[in-house]
Design a protein around this nucleic acid. Structure first.
Lengths: 193, 193
DNA sequence: AAATATACTTACTTATCAGTAAGTAAACAA
DNA sequence: TTGTTTACTTACTGATAAGTAAGTATATTT
């Protein structure tokens, strides 16, 4: 009678991530997940005991995905820096094309004071990884004369992340097209004159 | 600067705005407001029948404050453009210094799909006003040779707003200091070389 | 074959949420 | 003086939230 599990845990994780990036951690419930997947509320609690557990798993999933991406691209020294940057930007493009989702940092930055210390720490570690990687690419690109910008690469990296994260949110309020214009502006600002 | 509230209605409005910018519209309740102000839940409902009404009033309050600010500064043609820009940035500085609040667009951009159409429309109108004003300043500044940037002023304006909004969120995850570095980077990027 | 582990469901609890109806005390207007 | 409006309180509703204890069918291990 009871059907075989397909991979309910993974389905919950992915749907949780989707809801997190569409509505925010405080605007979806376990019931939203269970009803959408055709299981019962307790099934979600079986796989992720608390909402904090689910959140931690979502952050971890995003970390894995990012690590995998940069591993496939190789080190900055052996990379086409413009390709590397574009790959990074493509994460945000995928977000906006996927039901106008925003990024993890935009969503959890807004709700930062409503999540537990574990989530905060985990998020911070991920942001450091991303900023370190972006800084490397920016540094290498500037060394090669393919990027041009003032100041420290790390701060420029933070600016790119902030602009992309904020851009996804502003594009919800205005138009999707605005985000593509923003991306072009970001790239244009980085081009040597 | 935000005035000190005299009556209950104004207190509710200001506390609602504070909670919105600290925790997001879905993470505070009327009870949070009433208990904090020492009144009963129904008193909040008396002044703002629904949470949507409160949200609309908060957006309207921010609109008024912005209109007042730009009125005091006068038109772009008669303004020190760097002063004008700094005044605008000061709104964000006040936010981060005030319990690490984020801006209205960061908060409601994240929760955009959980607020009603009235809130969405109202927010859109305000964002258009702000972008129009910023565009004017950027255009005037570039004409005078005090700002330097590529492309359309409107898109650059959107980039500034996105970077500032996203920067407030990222600074929660990393450090307050990072936001000040970001502001310096933004200004440095605008300076003629 | 028996024991155990996995992946759930049923049925429930406790807490909190937005919102409302009815009452009240004080200020104000006719 | 009387009636009305303002600014609430008391007391409640129905919905929904996260979370849990106990049961069940199936799969895996011994």
């Amino acid at each position: 009678m009871v059907k075989k599990p397909e991979n309910t845990k993974q389905k919950i994780l992915l749907l949780g991530e989707k809801l997190l990036k569409e509505k925010g951690i405080n605007a979806f419930s376990y019931h939203d997940i269970s009803s959408s997947l055709g299981v019962k509320n307790a099934a979600v609690h079986y796989h992720f005991g608390s909402k904090e557990d689910l959140l931690l798993a979502i952050i971890e999933e995003n970390r894995k995905r990012f690590e995998q991406m940069i591993q496939q691209m190789g080190t900055a020294g052996h990379m086409e820096v413009w390709n590397g940057l574009q790959e990074f930007i493509n994460i945000y493009i995928s977000s906006i094309e996927n039901n106008r989702q925003i990024c993890l940092f935009g969503s959890l930055g807004s709700d930062f004071f409503t999540i537990g210390p574990k989530g905060q720490t985990s998020l911070k570690l991920l942001s450091e990884k991303i900023l370190a990687w972006l800084s490397e690419i920016l540094t290498e690109g500037r060394k090669r004369g393919e990027f041009e910008f003032k100041g420290h690469a790390r701060i420029k990296a933070m600016m790119l992340c902030s602009a992309l994260a904020g851009g996804l949110q502003l594009a919800r309020i205005s138009e999707k097209k605005d985000f593509y214009n923003l991306v072009d502006q970001i790239k244009s600002d980085l081009k040597p004159s």
